[in-house]
Design a protein around this nucleic acid. Structure first.
Lengths: 125, 125
DNA sequence: ACAATGCTTGCATGAATGTGCAAGCGAGCA
DNA sequence: TGCTCGCTTGCACATTCATGCAAGCATTGT
């Protein structure tokens, strides 16, 4: 996956150096779908590679739809696939994702000092 | 923002306990748009609250569009707004986001042990 | 060679969403 | 009371995208 920065060239507002880490729009697009979230959860629960037909039991959609979702996740760089015979095995490959999430968290934190007024967001206290 | 888990009830594949942290689909939806990414970058670069009209200089879209994007980001819990006179000031409020990103990174990491075969993903080496 | 299995891809369709314009609404000003 | 300013909202439209079905393709088995 190529982390693609958004265009800020027209922006006339500038203060500090901003976000050190660009927001990976395409990565977030891949994660922003309930079916794909369920697929990732399925792969995580299994704790091992799964065939497409196994993954497809996690959601009511057609197997072809699941196949396409897996391709999307592969292009986003969060799963990898390997063909063995006539089966294709998918497995999580979240090393890059984990690094990116932490880098982005660091970037937001260092750029925007936490204020006291916020609590209970995102299901965490 | 309410972190909403995806439905995994139909899934017949189970191994370990899976992801401890649900994938926040709605949050990722909010981040998965180039205009909104630019808006966040603009707020980050400024390092201070901005009025809507200031934010709108970051992207070519109409001010009304930017206003709607800011509302979306507010509902996602990553910015907050405050009306002062006839102006509305928006500021980043990323404490919850930062916590969630780290929790999700931890969840992926503890659930899916890193493999050696992956490198150079997400723009990081 | 032929058929079956497992997955992917083409195509059509409906739903969701980003966008611009115009109107509306609240706050300050004359 | 009007008027302007700053922002939000209603509406229409175009694009994106998720989905299902059917066909295609690669691999294996007979």
């Amino acid at each position: 996956m190529n982390v693609q920065a958004s265009n800020l060239d027209n922006c006339i507002v500038a203060g500090n150096e901003g976000l050190r880490e660009p927001i990976a729009v395409d990565l977030f697009k891949a994660l922003a779908d309930p079916s794909r979230a369920a697929i990732l959860g399925s792969l995580a629960s299994a704790g091992r590679p799964l065939r497409v037909s196994e993954v497809s039991t996690c959601c009511p959609q057609d197997l072809s739809v699941v196949s396409r979702h897996l391709a999307t996740l592969r292009e986003a760089g969060v799963v990898e696939s390997e063909r063995r015979g006539r089966e294709v095995w998918y497995r999580l490959e979240t090393g890059g994702l984990v690094r990116y999430l932490r880098d982005l968290a660091d970037a937001f934190e260092s750029c925007c000092p936490p204020t006291s007024s916020e609590d209970g967001k995102h299901g965490k206290k």
